[in-house]
Computed example of a mutant assay.
Amino acid sequence: MKTETSVHNPDEFTLKEKLTYGIVGLLMIGGSFFIGRSLIRKARATAEEKKTYEDGSPATFAKQINMAFENDNWLGWGTDEEALRKTLQAIPSKDAMRKVINSYQKLYARSMMADMQSELTTSEYSEMLAIIAAKPETGSSEVTAQPTPLQYQSWAKRLKSAFDITYWMFPGTDEDAIKAVFMEMRTQADFWQTAAAYQSLYGSELLKDLQSELEVWEYVPMMDILMKKPKT
């Protein structure tokens, strides 16, 4: 006795069956796409992670920046602005910065600048942008801040950002940011050139703003940093 095998003609599928099979197919394709993309990202991150052992590499800078964002301190939260500032200062040029941004994307699948903006207050973010803006376009080694109009503007902007910082909606002053600028200045003349740039940018006297922003016990040692530098 011959047994007949039932063959389901595609034309005989009901609308419900067609929709079900179609959705399942789309889910399988979509799932494969996301799994594939995840594997590619993981492979890229793993390859980039190996470069973080190279001192001064874009991957190393990118990882240091991420560590500053995560800042596993005793409070368990916050951003290490000092570590971030030092890392950005160590990046030698705008071209190198672009490579760091690209490496950060490979390591964490996120935008470095977007993360930075999210982690910092507006004034802190402006300070970091000023550090980046003062860098030369190209270069492979860290350079000491040079006395140029661009550098004076950068210092002026960073000082203004330090004055404009707020803490939980309360106005404050970022003394560490001010000190960082003063430590970078090589001469007293650098300060006065920065004061001129500050006046041009904001229509205000830098020295008076410093006196207004700092307490006496903060202002004196801060100015002492400058007075110990050569005049020119």
Rank of each mutant, 00 (worst) to 15 (best):
T5V: 15
R158D: 00
S57W: 09
W77G: 06
L159I: 14
P147S: 08
A68Q: 00
A133E: 05
K51H: 10
S6Q: 14
T148Y: 14
P58R: 11
E213T: 08
T187F: 08
S32G: 11
Y125W: 13
E82V: 10
S212W: 09
L214E: 06
A197Q: 08
F13S: 07
E81A: 06
R186K: 04
L150G: 14
S93P: 03
G36C: 03
A196I: 02
F34A: 11
F13E: 09
M112E: 08
M185E: 01
S111H: 10
T144E: 13
W168P: 00
E142L: 08
L206A: 04
M67L: 05
I91D: 01
T232D: 15
G56Y: 06
S200H: 08
Q188I: 05
A68W: 00
Y108S: 02
K229L: 02
A156M: 01
E17R: 12
F69L: 06
T121Q: 10
T14N: 07
T138V: 09
M113Y: 08
S154Q: 05
S126I: 02
F33H: 08
V181N: 00
N73G: 12
L84Y: 04
K94L: 10
W155S: 01
L39R: 15
E142Y: 13
T3P: 02
Q193A: 12
W74H: 13
Q105E: 15
L226I: 15
M128G: 01
E127L: 09
L107E: 01
S103L: 02
S154M: 04
M67N: 06
Y219M: 05
T166L: 13
S111T: 10
E124K: 07
W74Q: 15
K231F: 11
E48N: 07
E81T: 10
E81R: 04
A180W: 09
A47N: 09
A177F: 04
E17I: 07
S6L: 14
R110Y: 08
E142N: 07
Y167D: 09
K135T: 08
